[in-house]
Amino acid sequence: MARRKFQEINAGSMADIAFLLLIFFLVTTTMDIDKGLNRILPPKLITEEKPPVIKERNVFVVLLNDKNQLLVEGEIVELSNLREETKEFIANPKRLKTLPEFTEKEIRILGRMQVSKQITSLQNDRGTSYETYIAVQNELAAAYNELRDDMAIKEFGEPYKQLVKNKKLPGNSAKIDAIRKAIPQRISEAEPS
């Protein structure tokens, strides 16, 4: 009986096929993970409803003109100094009468805390460049985050950034929540002039 010899399938072109697929995926897909600054827009005002009155001492007014210059609480400020100014306003360490008020609040884990009533208002001109606007937004957010870091180190021995990074770890999300309640990030984007 004649033994039939198996004919092997030539796998030489397999690599070519795989390369073809690989190149197809390289071209049609993107790798960038989306990152950015998250913000909540203020809800649309119903005309009859008056906006809530906020005391002037509680508002940190940042104005940005079409030449990308900053006016903070009535004074011209360089972008590099904005972070420190904002931090001082939010924290109000000496409890000055001109800086924001505090209220006592019960916060889980942290207990009774003095929470600042501050609010940051950022108003820009139609001619302001987007790059500067984002830079200012970033500096304001950085001021809040640095204060949160300080508090988190004091209370939990770990910076806020680290907590957010490891938020999947047990207990961390409650800690993040507590810090956020103690130093709420309130950045209001006013309508442009």
Binding site: D34, K35, L37, R39, L41, S80, N138, E139
Partner: peptide, 14 residues
């Protein structure tokens, strides 16, 4: 109302 300003990671020019 939920928005995100898409950015790259990097130092801000001050």
């Amino acid at each position: 109302l939920k928005i995100n300003y898409s950015t790259r990671k990097g130092e801000v020019l001050t």
